[in-house]
Design a protein around this nucleic acid. Structure first.
Lengths: 157, 157
DNA sequence: TATTGTTATACTCTATAACTATA
DNA sequence: TATAGTTATAGAGTATAACAATA
């Protein structure tokens, strides 16, 4: 009898170690994201940025940088790319002309929607041993356990 | 009333997106691992390698490289370091003198034990919203869902 | 000729540090 | 003087590819 070999796997050592399991799953996800999201026309980082624009309403690019946990220079370059492709728009904040308000365009929202579908499919593919209900359980535990959103003291204005 | 601000957080955008939650949690874990494991005298990658040596009984360095998902050159350098510090030992496989059998020493096993405790503490710290039972639930879901261990066709000999 | 381990090289990614403008 | 954004540089980390030894 022919058994289907798993495409992605983690060492047995991860079995009893929550840290290795999480870091491993996250690493696999990051490695695969760029390829799997390609049909949506965005890479993993751009997907994260679009999602942040929609859900977190950041008041400046610096705030995006903090939410993303990456250096500002990186975000600037990424937003440059997204803007050139019409997925986001930059407008100066009239109240403080140093700040760039970044907003998601209709094209950007469409790319984000496609990205969401592809990302969900990737998660399903990564967890061959879980059914839909268990994946939902996993998501609920993560969302409940982690601190989401920037603390007020780190928010612009 | 003074509230304790969370040390680590993810964008709100991650809330309804399992992929972003997992990638984010894994990323935070990877970023923090080196600092948090320092008291055990090892970094994140060395912790992974020691755990693999104990649990997966790899037959060659190439097999470690596959389990780790990193290039062989990287593993060679890491094992060099670990060997110089007495945490692992290298012996040539008499049956096939091309292969290096890498084994964990007593000192290595001790470092791994300390690393396990520190890694568990880090996970608890990362999930301020979960109690011990919920963290166990999270571990069970991950372990059940992911494919663990190398497929036979990828194993040495 | 194929495989393991090793070494050396090149490249990608990221952070750091200046610099400009606004406040 | 401090902050947002931007640009330019340098360093770390990684993969790729060449090499040596064994099969």
């Amino acid at each position: 009898m022919l058994s289907v070999e798993p495409d992605f796997c983690l060492p047995l050592a991860a079995g009893g170690r929550t840290g290795l399991l999480l870091a491993g799953a996250g690493g696999l996800l990051n490695d695969l994201a760029d390829v799997k999201l390609a049909p949506a026309g965005i890479d993993g980082r751009e997907y994260s940025i679009l999602a942040i624009l929609k859900a977190d309403s950041p008041g400046s690019q610096l705030e995006i940088s903090r939410l993303l946990g990456k250096a500002p220079a990186l975000v600037v370059a990424a937003i440059d790319d997204l803007e050139a492709r019409g997925l986001v728009a930059r407008t100066r904040d009239p109240a403080d002309r140093r700040r760039s308000r970044v907003t998601i365009t209709a094209a950007g929202a469409k790319a984000l929607d496609e990205g969401d579908k592809l990302a969900d499919a990737l998660v399903v593919e990564l967890f061959p041993g879980l059914d839909a209900g268990e994946i939902q359980q996993l998501q609920d535990l993560l969302a409940k356990g982690l601190s989401l959103g920037l603390p007020d003291w780190a928010r612009a204005s």
